[in-house]
């Protein structure tokens, strides 16, 4: 798991980006570059990124396809045109993030948190998202078709122009969602929670 050490910046209680004593947001530009370079190196040389904490990062065209992310924290980060296709994500935190034009096709995510994020024009087609926290999303123009969303929780989300076609939504929670132009065609809506 990423370190539980708290940022040394006065008043900040975010977790530090190891090996530095501050969180990514409060790190200097030199430290930020070292942290990002370390992430890029890990992504190019290894298959697994683990125990990383980058709070408030800004990523564009990042290629995570086919990689694994374990026990990491990317809260308050922005991901633009990033490729997560066929990646495996476990026990990781992407809460309060912004995802724009990202590809998550054939993603395998379990015990992950995307809560409070804004997800726009992303494809999660053919993904498995098991026990994922998607509470309070702003979810616009996305495609979750042919996905297994067993036990995931979208409650209190605003979901618009989004497809959940041919999905397994057994025990998936859509309680108190604002749904507009959302298609559940061929999905097992009788097994999901809507109220």
């Amino acid at each position: 798991m990423f370190t539980s050490q708290i940022c040394s910046h006065p008043g900040c209680k975010s977790y530090v980006s190891a090996p530095f004593g501050t969180c990514f947001h409060h790190s200097g530009s030199k430290e930020k570059e070292i942290i990002l370079e370390s992430l890029r190196k890990t992504l190019s040389s290894r298959t697994t990124v683990r125990d990383v904490s980058i709070i408030g990062g800004d990523f564009e065209n990042l290629d995570i396809s086919g990689k694994s992310i374990w026990a990491s924290n990317f809260s308050f980060s922005t991901f633009r045109s990033c490729d997560f296709s066929s990646s495996r994500i476990s026990t990781s935190f992407f809460d309060m993030c912004i995802f724009i034009d990202c590809v998550f096709s054939e993603l395998s995510a379990r015990y992950c948190v995307f809560s409070g994020s804004r997800i726009t024009r992303c494809s999660f087609a053919m993904s498995t998202m098991f026990n994922c926290n998607l509470i309070g999303l702003d979810c616009l123009d996305n495609d979750f078709s042919s996905s297994d969303l067993y036990f995931s929780n979208f409650s209190m989300s605003r979901i618009e122009n989004t497809k959940f076609e041919d999905c397994n939504i057994k025990r998936t929670n859509y309680k108190a969602c604002a749904l507009k132009n959302v298609s559940f065609r061929y999905s097992n809506t009788q097994d999901a929670y809507f109220s």
């Binding site: 935190f93 809460d95 015990y111 948190v113 809560s115 026990n131 926290n133 036990f151 995931s152 209190m156």
Partner: peptide, 12 residues
Amino acid sequence: GCPSKIRIERMM
């Protein structure tokens, strides 16, 4: 169910 954070539970 899924994991969460205290911030999320306070808000949502």
